[in-house]
Amino acid sequence: MKKVEAVIRPEKFQALRVKLEEVGINGLTVSEVAGCGQQKGEQGLFRGQSFEIKLVPKVKVEMILETEQVDEVIKIIQSICSTNQIGDGKIFVYPVEDAVRIRTGEAGVEAIL
Rank of each mutant, 00 (worst) to 15 (best):
V61S: 00
Q49T: 12
T83M: 05
E42A: 15
Q49C: 14
V30L: 01
V23Q: 01
P95Q: 02
K3Q: 12
L28G: 02
V93Y: 03
I64G: 03
G108P: 05
C81H: 09
G27E: 10
K12F: 07
E5Q: 09
P95S: 06
I86C: 01
V4C: 04
K40E: 15
M63G: 00
E68T: 11
K90V: 02
R9L: 09
G108S: 04
N26W: 13
K75A: 14
R17Q: 11
Q78E: 13
R101L: 07
Q85P: 02
G89T: 03
V70F: 01
C36I: 13
D88P: 07
L45Q: 15
Y94M: 08
T83C: 06
E106G: 03
F46R: 14
V23T: 08
N26I: 10
K54V: 15
K12T: 05
V18H: 07
E11V: 06
G35E: 04
E68L: 10
K75M: 09
V73Y: 08
F13N: 05
Q49H: 13
L28I: 05
E22F: 03
V96H: 03
I91E: 02
R9E: 12
V61L: 07
E110D: 15
K19D: 06
R9Y: 09
G41S: 01
L16V: 04
V109F: 12
V93P: 02
E11W: 13
I76L: 07
I112P: 00
G105V: 11
R17T: 02
I74N: 06
K60L: 08
L20E: 04
R101K: 10
V96R: 03
K75W: 07
E62S: 11
V7C: 11
G35K: 02
L113N: 15
L55T: 09
S82F: 04
I86H: 00
C36M: 14
F51A: 12
L113S: 14
K58R: 13
V33I: 14
V18D: 12
K54D: 13
A111R: 04
D88K: 09
R103L: 08
E66Y: 03
G41K: 04
L113C: 10
K90Q: 03
A6V: 03
V70M: 02
T67F: 05
I74G: 04
T29C: 05
G44Y: 06
G37C: 07
E68Y: 10
Q38N: 14
R103P: 05
E62C: 07
Q69I: 01
T83A: 05
I112S: 01
F92K: 02
G48M: 09
Q49G: 14
D98K: 10
A6H: 00
V61N: 00
V59A: 09
K54W: 11
V4L: 14
G37T: 13
Q78T: 13
A111N: 07
V73A: 02
I80Q: 02
K60H: 04
C36Y: 15
L55I: 06
V56N: 11
C81T: 12
K3M: 13
K40S: 11
L113K: 15
A15I: 08
